[in-house]
């Protein structure tokens, strides 16, 4: 991916497995290295789909989704 200029504020329930193990949303600069091979899950459902039955992914778990929860300050 080449366009990542926009700051990503993913849902606080999104988790991913990347080369560091897992990344919680609490890390400010949410940069999922190698994201085309990263797998995602929702901590609310402990599954590949969120509570709204749609898949969890960095491109989807963003503001506007019904089940989106902004990271706590």
């Amino acid at each position: 991916m080449s366009e990542t200029a926009t700051k990503i504020i993913p849902c606080q329930c999104l988790r991913t497995k990347n080369p560091y193990g897992t990344t919680p949303a609490s890390y400010e600069d949410w940069h999922p290295t190698m994201h085309t091979t990263s797998t995602y899950w929702c901590i609310n459902t402990m599954s590949f789909a969120g509570p709204d039955d749609h898949f969890a992914h960095l491109s989807r778990c963003v503001q506007g989704r019904a089940c989106y929860q902004a990271p706590e300050e």
Binding site: T4, H57, S59, R60, Q63
Partner: peptide, 21 residues
């Protein structure tokens, strides 16, 4: 497997994510 793109929850509130896949 999932409903079509137009029905995506993620896009319902305004246009996919920053990665825009």
């Amino acid at each position: 497997v999932y409903p079509g793109a137009a029905d995506q929850a993620g896009s319902a509130g305004g246009g996919g994510g920053p990665h825009g896949v």
